[in-house]
Design a protein around this nucleic acid. Structure first.
Lengths: 243, 243
DNA sequence: ATATTTATTGACTCACGGTCAAAACTGACC
DNA sequence: GGTCAGTTTTGACCGTGAGTCAATAAATAT
């Protein structure tokens, strides 16, 4: 039994897996799931198709892994957001900010993510990838939950109104839904949406007001908060317009 | 040139198209998009595969048509809902009710609908089907919009706060998002969601409160409203639990 | 009854996801 | 440095299934 080569092999394997995912993401984003050809992918990475199947069980498995990688990135942003120093609702806003920043940075991510949630896609992925995806979902959720609990402790949310998990879910729901609605080609026109991000954030504000999360939108200068969030946590977010 | 036979032909064509869609829906719902085989579909309808292609451009085209049929059904429910006699927020609630009723009646619809919105699927459908889909989306949206405008007229929504289209979009967003979140396998457990429908309606309530849509949740007995909605508009909705 | 147009077919192609026996490579042992 | 068991990698091959189109059947016109 030789250890050094084994370790090297593992490292090389990890590198190759990353190589596969990098190219898979590129193909997936440019041609969609249907346009992702495993023959082309094999050619891109300069390994054979068989080798790809040493890493992943199916095409769907690869797509889910790509999605999970992006989701991990999103979780990281969320965790950074929770570290914002401020009122509880400002911290919640920082998470909303993170989410929008992610959307701007990864404009095509939602398409793939939504697709993978369709039963017939989800079912064809491996347990391993499914678990990894749920782990990252959990991380996102926990970031939210942490801020919600802090809000209860600070008395910024009315005690006993709703269980905290439900509040986190509501926040996630409005965000996901807004992103989706913003992407529907025809409705954007129909509803006169000019700036999708603005809509998302707007809807988040409405929900938090509905939850009576203090301070309410009208009682605080959240534009200033946004500027602080950007300056202190997400200096790379160049999309935020002043005012 | 013969007219009578032409009319009959058109009728027969429409019947056959419906036949295709009926069977396509069955296969789609039971096996998912991947499991929908055009050979099997052809066998089901007792016509050849070529004939299917006289009606639809691609597999995606068929799937979109199935989706649109369901969406048309949903639009019908929405329009019925707008006819509820009551306060503006009660009418909005009736639409929320309709949406939940639809979800209960068509539990797998959202999967397909979400999939069709992915770029690579949408792109493979025909213009004709895309337009039909957007037409039905528009009908849903307009039902919502109608109730929102009525709310402004009645003074139940604070004037000048937000443009009505944006309010409609927010309502649609929170609903769509809640449905999606409710369906994610792992998160349901993580967040302790027991009744997905309850969550959807809850989130809708929170948003409408956030919009200051009078009367607020705490100022009105909306359980009674639900009972009336069911009795007067949706007697077939057996899922509504009393209380 | 026959010609012409229209409707329908299903065998065929081709692309692609997935497999696996064979080839290439590795490193342990003499 | 040569041999060989074990491991890794390969790419030709398979089955499936979407989409096509020349051939056929049915309907209609003459």
């Amino acid at each position: 039994m030789s250890n050094p080569p084994t370790l090297r092999k593992e490292r090389e394997r990890a590198v190759r897996e990353e190589l596969i995912l990098t190219h898979a993401r590129r193909l997936l984003l440019s041609n969609g799931f249907q346009g992702l050809s495993l023959d082309e992918l094999a050619r891109s990475i300069e390994y054979s198709k068989g080798t790809i199947y040493l890493h992943f069980d199916s095409k769907e498995d690869i797509a889910l892994a790509v999605t999970t990688e992006a989701l991990r990135e999103r979780s990281n942003l969320f965790e950074r957001a929770t570290r914002f120093q401020g009122l509880s609702r400002e911290r919640a806003r920082a998470i909303g900010f993170a989410c929008c920043h992610f959307m701007v940075t990864n404009p095509d991510y939602f398409n793939i993510d939504m697709m993978m949630k369709s039963q017939s896609f989800w079912d064809r992925a491996s347990d391993k990838q499914r678990e990894a995806y749920l782990t990252q979902s959990g991380r996102c959720f926990r970031s939210l939950q942490q801020v919600v609990l802090a809000a209860f402790e600070a008395g910024d949310l009315p005690a006993g109104s709703l269980p905290p998990e439900q509040i986190s879910m509501a926040m996630a729901s409005v965000t996901v839904g807004s992103h989706i609605m913003a992407e529907i080609p025809g409705l954007k026109m129909l509803a006169g949406i000019e700036d999708p991000i603005k809509m998302v954030r707007n809807n988040q504000d409405l929900l938090l007001d509905g939850l009576q999360w203090k301070p309410l939108l009208r009682d605080h200068d959240y534009n200033a908060t946004d500027q602080r969030i950007r300056a202190e946590i997400f200096p790379e977010a160049t999309w935020l317009k002043p005012g």
